[in-house]
Structures are given as C-alpha cells and as structure tokens.
C-alpha cells in the first residue's frame, strides 16, 4: 500500500503572527516545523501501511524557499521519502493553487513509489486554516474524499471510515484510491527516537521546482490567487469585569450572577 501524506511546514505557531505591510499576507519566517495537525496524518499513514502488511509512505510538501526542516520531522516519524515542491513563485499561493501544486506532487509520487492508494491530509493547516485545500486536491486528482475522519480501515480496494459529524459520526465507504482528512487527536503521533531522527537525514527528499512538475508560475503564487486584501484594521476590544478570589463561597457569586442574568 502506498500512502501519500501532505505535510505543511510552518513557522513556530506559538510566535505571534503578523502581516507583511506590503503584500498584507502572513509573514512566514523563522524556524520551520511540521504543522502539528499533520502529525496525526503521518501517524495514521504509518499505521495503515503497517496494517496492510507493507508499502510506503511518501510525505508531500510545498514551500516557497527550499524549506525541508518540517518534512524531516515526517521522515523521522517513519515516512519513507518526501517530495517538496519549492519555487519562489509559490509565495502568496491561495488554497486552490496550493491544491494544484500538491496534486502534481502526489502524481509524481505515484510515478516513483507506485500508484498512490490513499492521500492523507489534516483537516486544515494551523497557520492558514482555509480548510478547503484537501477537497480541492481530491477534486483535482479526481478522487473521492472523506473529510474529518476519526478512523480508517483499508480493505483491498475499499476503505471504511468513521467521519465526525455534529451529531456523532457517519460510517462511510469509499473505493480506493481516495483522500481522507484526519481530525486532530484521533491517533497518538509517535515521538521519533534519536536513531530515527538520524536515519531521516539519509532518506530520499526530492526537492522539485514548478517546471519539473509541468506547472506554470502564472497558476500559483500572488498571480494565481485572484484575490486581494483590501483593508486591515484593528478589531474592537472586549473589556473584563469583576474578578473574585475563591474563599470557599465563590460558587455563590456565580449563582447570583446567573440569577441576575435570568439564566436560572
């Protein structure tokens, strides 16, 4: 079984974000890491290949600046190889252009390690969180997609999936190949051992450009996004009210506050 897992490399999510004053897009700089949301997808991919009795996991990533640090995290967890699409023209890409690039990379992965049976992604990235890229990717690859997945069982040519819903979950069946998006917290991502981190250094990590994938710079980046930021303003602030220390009776304060609000 061959699973392609999309991995986004992002700046430290704990660092405060800011917008580029000129392009008004998110400044993405500093040390890059694998988006935590993707660690669940990598873990699920590894487990599925193991359950299938073998195969390969290919990590797929896109970055404007030859960034591979975050992809190394996926290789250290156990992915076998990686394809990173890197090109200065990718800067400013929107969700649809990103999906277009990832689709070309997944296709390339299929040429390399055999046809891809399953594409795994997070439900959305931590820094951009548009949340449409995975399904756009599935559409471009002409694949079925099951989103917000809690559990995946592959069985030959078909996959059975538990999909999160507002009421509970749906059991969904799909043919393979397919794409699934994995909800955070549904598997326990493994911590790579020191040995695995060292071994990752020697795993194949192919950095390819747009032209290598037959894509044109006009389809991606700022040019391909076909949207613009018209204005940036500060939001209204909300003020705090009374703060009380619990002296053993603070719950009564809450009760009387709820009474005053006519909640009880």
């Amino acid at each position: 079984m061959h699973v392609a897992v999309c991995v986004k490399q992002i700046p430290d999510p704990a660092a405060p974000g800011r917008l580029d004053p000129e392009t008004k897009t998110l400044v993405r700089e500093g040390k890059f890491v694998m988006d935590d949301s993707d660690s669940y997808g990598v873990e699920m991919a590894l487990q599925l290949v193991q359950a299938a009795g073998g195969g390969a996991v290919t990590a797929i990533s896109m970055a404007p600046n030859n960034e591979i640090k975050g992809v190394k995290d996926a290789l250290a967890m156990g992915a076998d190889s990686a394809i990173v699409v890197s090109d200065p023209a990718l800067k400013g890409s929107d969700a649809l252009s990103t999906a277009r690039v990832l689709a070309a990379a997944v296709t390339r992965a299929g040429d390399g390690a055999g046809p891809v049976d399953l594409v795994v992604t997070a439900t959305e990235s931590t820094d951009g969180y548009t949340g449409t890229t995975p399904v756009q990717l599935a559409a471009l690859l002409d694949l079925p997609a099951v989103t917000f997945v809690k559990k995946v069982v592959c069985d030959g040519s078909k996959v059975t999936v538990e999909r999160q819903t507002d009421e509970g979950y749906d059991e969904v069946e799909s043919t393979l190949p397919a794409l699934v998006t994995v909800t955070a917290g549904v598997v326990e991502p493994r911590y790579p051992s020191f040995k695995a981190i060292m071994a990752a250094k020697n795993k194949p990590c192919h950095v390819v450009g747009l032209a290598d994938l037959g894509l044109d710079a006009s389809q991606v980046g700022f040019a391909g996004a076909r949207q613009e930021i018209t204005e940036v303003l500060a939001a209204e602030e909300r003020k705090g009210g009374d703060i009380v220390e619990d002296d053993g009776d603070a719950h009564l304060r809450i009760v009387s506050y709820l009474e005053s609000l006519k909640v009880i």
Partner: peptide, 24 residues
C-alpha cells in the same frame, strides 16, 4: 457555511468552476 458539508461542497465547486475561495 463553514461546516463539514459546506467545506466539502466549496472545495469541489472551486475546482469545477475554477474559482478561488474566501473562507472563514
């Protein structure tokens, strides 16, 4: 709507119509 189904529909529609999406 930015919901499970709404996002699925938006992603497919974006590709089918070659139209970008503004989300959130």
């Amino acid at each position: 709507p930015q919901t499970y189904e709404g996002r699925d529909i938006a992603g497919r529609l974006s590709v089918a119509l070659d139209a970008p999406v503004l989300a959130n």
